[in-house]
Design a binder for these strands. Sequence first.
DNA 1: GGCTCACATGTCCTTTGGTACATGTCCTCT
DNA 2: AGAGGACATGTACCAAAGGACATGTGAGCC
Lengths: 173, 173
Amino acid sequence: MSLRHGLLGLLAEGPASGYDLARRFQEVLGQIWPAQHPKIYAELGRLADEGLIEVDSEGPRRRKAYRITEAGEAEIRRWLSTEDVDHTMRLQSLLRSLFFWLMEPDDLRRHLDDEARFFADAAARYRAYAEAKDRGDFGDSPQTRSMRITIEAAVRIYQALADWAEWAKTAPK
Amino acid sequence: MSLRHGLLGLLAEGPASGYDLARRFQEVLGQIWPAQHPKIYAELGRLADEGLIEVDSEGPRRRKAYRITEAGEAEIRRWLSTEDVDHTMRLQSLLRSLFFWLMEPDDLRRHLDDEARFFADAAARYRAYAEAKDRGDFGDSPQTRSMRITIEAAVRIYQALADWAEWAKTAPK
DNA sequence: GGCTCACATGTCCTTTGGTACATGTCCTCT
DNA sequence: AGAGGACATGTACCAAAGGACATGTGAGCC
């Protein structure tokens, strides 16, 4: 359960509403850490109950922005420095690849083309994002520097998968 | 829900018991597609109810091996060729990297060392596996050729992440 | 003034994943 | 003969994820 810590971490950057957080999850973490708004609102409620965050302001359209508390900041730091990292990935593309031998050659080629395109597009998208950051489009705070590191990981993973899909086309059937 | 199709795919290679399947999931797909035995037995029951698999043989120690049926093979093929791939990954390492700015430099360095080591070890483990396959240690069936492709993906992803962790150490804080 | 759209928050229900617990069986070693 | 360990299957429960549905609000435009 690290949605909890994902929210705390984002709130450590500054106050935000559930809506804001849902959008940030979607934009930055799209495929890498999906989170739907129902889960986010529910978790925010729980975090507030436990005193890890508190209501910062209420705005128009029932908007409710939260702010991290000292207890919350202590908790996210504790998580970052003492909890073990969960390294599971659950990549459906890899699970499927185990069963390529069941596919017709034509289907497989099409599939690998689609996969290569998808991963190359994703890599390109994150690469563009990285370049914008390097140009300074988003300023140069510690937060953006961390984000730059995250983006770099995304670029490298997607590029590795794109290369893999291309390589797989040449592998003996 | 692709545990279902993971099981069907593995059973397409030949009859196996829940225990066998749990071990194969653990060995080959360890971090890439974890599955606990309770889920596996439950899913096997459902697959049998739906006629996608059937009991092949009963052995000592209550062992029950299943065999894929024609309907089951049709279903796995249908899944492979017509269902969209789910590309979500949920990599906790990347989520955490967003919050590196909250960590003390010493903690962060230690963390990146651990991450680099973990990913490099994983890459090495899969690389050794790949080499054994290339030497022909596991024969040369279509199934092992598909497995070789899966392993190649694992090698590339883990290597990319290991390189990333090393790179992150040099990135400006 | 009314329409539409983005903003904003939530409930409810189903599926999936994971942990704990429980049980039975055969083999090997001492 | 007995102990321990790997083999083998399951139940029960809880946490997490995801989709469907519902509702209210302010801004901009025609």
